[in-house]
Design a protein around this nucleic acid. Structure first.
Lengths: 325, 325
DNA sequence: TTGAAAGCGCTACCAT
DNA sequence: ATGGTAGCGCTTTCAA
């Protein structure tokens, strides 16, 4: 790796001049510029980003903090974020938080120490205060934290309403809800959407709501429990696709047919829904677009460009597949 | 963020001394050390990693280059790598290459510019020469590139043999193979394992081998094609789990029963295999352990510690689930 | 045992 | 239009 000084020497100019052509600012004659450019090419010179970072107090790096990249919702999001960052010349630092506040705070220290330019967060544990203290551009995706932090979400309440309504329209008589964890915002919103539709139904009672944790195995167990206690259930709205998959497994294992005996609808629109059989009907969020927009918003903040909206709620879309009639 | 100078001033010592206690090297009296430590605590001082990097020419960052984090094999690997790096104080930079050599080379430039300490690669396009030129500690996972680059793989040939043998033992009469892309090492090794078992069978002919690309949709198509042309097929060895899932979908769509009419076995052992119904019998690689070991090996190289083995081949394990008799 | 100072590679200010 | 140089925050050598 050659340095700017070597380039300067070889081109017969000062490092200041080389720096100017590198950054395309300040006066430099066309001739000198060509000279320098030629030498840069010749030496295959690439500026040292660390030295730059030290001076500019920024690193062209953005952190993505997710609970667990292994959860099939996140790879697609991560991909969208990375693609976008890449286009704008940023690099992605990936962090798995396991929803542990302490781990998140440790990461946040590291971000500061490395001059990371900003962060995209998916977290339920981080408070507005934590983010404030981070004192870095931040965009929150999927779960909002506070109204003055840039946020990208989708219509959880409305999506949940549509999901429940859809089951009803398809003739389901008793619709259960497999909800996500109680400390998770999206889980609550979706639960509210469900409640909004069913609360005045004669058949409705709180026993039709079971709590899962956005993960498959427990959701399968919970579903079995639900179906044993209330065999009249013929429709299940799962709070996310992974739990929907768990529900499918449980229902099948109990010897019931899908969708003839029980209809199931999920939420998220992850690829997994198309992998399984029967394919999962779902309320799809535009995951890639959410990551894309989140990354763009963050970059605008970092580059101090004006941001039209700091809150963006994406519409969701009902995708009818094979787990509903 | 306070600096080392502020700490020094407040503690009434020189920055050199502070640096010494920070790095725990050089002489410094117990009393002074306490002083300094107290001030560090007081100011909540965290050393600037960028400045450190500039001097030490290393960044405590490791890059993981994968084809596409969206491919369900990689999140688990990424998770293992990140967990391990984290333990040792390193940070993960995630890169999606899409198997494009150019993108990979761009990343490699960035790695150098940022003083990234090393890289974990999963790539078919990168040559030994590319890696050589990178001139950075490198560990290759899943697909070996060259014998003097540290490598972590699993028993592809043996696993494929076992898979095929297993189908045979279970009574399959005509076993097809859905192989991965021709430029991919693992795909070839697994193909060879299959061939090794079937080549002398009276029923065997090359028409039983179809080429997929380690992805679901095409694999479903290819499977249908295969089954239409050769309805006598009653066993399929898919080159990876994702293709196995595609095969399941195709077989089901054709109205055949699994495993009664057609048995299917995959390769990889990704979680997806347990998500679907019927659950996929597979040859499992210890994905997490591979990532873990790969990361550890890389760190040893970075820290110039002795490395017992530079090549590690993990044993695979047959996991019998529901797609085989 | 401690401090002064050079230097990691770059940017930007101030001269010229 | 170009060059000299201070300084970003740290580590390490050399002196004391």
């Amino acid at each position: 790796m050659s340095t700017i000084r070597e380039v300067a020497k070889k081109a017969g100019v000062s490092v200041a001049t080389v720096s100017r052509v590198l950054n395309n600012n300040g006066y430099v004659s066309a001739k000198t510029k060509d000279q320098v450019l030629k030498v840069i090419e010749l030496l295959d010179y690439k500026p040292n980003e660390v030295a730059r970072s030290l001076y500019k107090k920024q690193s062209n790096t953005v952190a993505l903090i997710v609970p667990d990249i292994t959860n099939p919702f996140f790879p697609e999001l991560a991909r969208a974020v990375e693609d976008t960052l890449n286009i704008y010349g940023y690099t992605l630092m990936l962090c798995n938080s396991d929803e542990q506040a302490e781990k998140e705070r440790e990461y946040m220290d590291v971000l500061k120490q490395k001059y990371v330019d900003g962060a995209i967060l998916v977290s339920n544990t981080l408070t507005a205060e934590d983010v404030q203290k981070l004192d870095l551009p931040v965009v929150v995706i999927d779960r909002s934290i506070h109204h003055n932090i840039s946020t990208v979400v989708s219509e959880n309440f409305e999506g949940a309403r549509q999901a429940t309504l859809f089951l009803k329209e398809k003739g389901c008589q008793v619709i259960a809800h497999l909800r996500g964890p109680e400390h998770v915002v999206t889980a609550n919103e979706r639960y509210q959407g469900y409640i909004d539709v069913v609360q005045n139904e004669s058949w409705f009672h709180e026993g039709l709501v079971a709590v899962g944790n956005y993960e498959m195995k427990t959701s399968a167990e919970v579903t079995k429990d639900l179906l044993n206690k209330h065999p009249e259930i013929d429709g299940i709205f799962a709070g996310n696709d992974v739990m929907g998959v768990g529900a499918i497994k449980a229902v099948k294992q109990m010897g019931k047919r899908i969708p003839e005996d029980v209809s199931i609808i999920g939420f998220d629109g992850i690829t997994l829904g198309e992998m399984i059989h029967p394919e999962l009907t779902t309320i799809a969020q535009p995951i890639y677009d959410m990551g894309l927009l989140g990354a763009r918003m963050l970059i605008k903040q970092i580059e101090k460009k004006p941001l039209a909206q700091t809150f963006h709620e994406f519409p969701i879309q009902l995708i009818q597949r094979q787990t509903t009639r």
